[in-house]
């Protein structure tokens, strides 16, 4: 059974980039969210196996979303997606239980590699 992935990013291009890359790698896309609030709703609704969580969202920061999800009891794996130079933010996510992170801009191959590693 393929893993369900929720994609959270405010950029439609990034979402489609991630979606195409993961679908090609055989993952099921549980949904896409372009802000924190919808991301939380969608995550609670779909209970995905993995969430790719962009750190900078229009309404809140990625690690804040992660905190809410963890408070809600969601145990999905999380890969933080971060722009260059946000190492401290990444560490905060890791503290909250993020499995790994990837730095933007990334290639499809490097994303798949990280996702596979998380599930390995």
């Amino acid at each position: 059974m393929s893993k369900k992935v929720l994609i959270v990013d405010d950029s439609i291009y990034m979402r489609s980039l991630v979606r195409s890359a993961l679908e090609e790698a055989g993952y099921e896309i549980a949904g896409e969210a372009k802000d924190g609030e919808s991301a939380i709703d969608l995550a609670m609704e779909t209970q995905p196996d993995l969430i790719t969580l962009d750190n900078i969202l229009p309404d809140m920061m990625g690690f804040e979303v992660l905190k809410v999800l963890r408070d809600e009891g969601l145990e999905s794996k999380v890969i933080m997606i971060s722009a260059v130079g946000q190492q401290t933010v990444i560490n905060k996510g890791k503290e909250l239980g993020a499995s790994d992170y990837i730095v933007k801009p990334f290639t499809s191959e490097s994303l798949v590699e990280v996702v596979n590693k998380v599930f390995a």
């Binding site: 990034m14 933007k104 290639t107």
Partner: peptide
Amino acid sequence: SLVAKEQS
């Protein structure tokens, strides 16, 4: 991906 990269 170009646009995503650009935005990143």
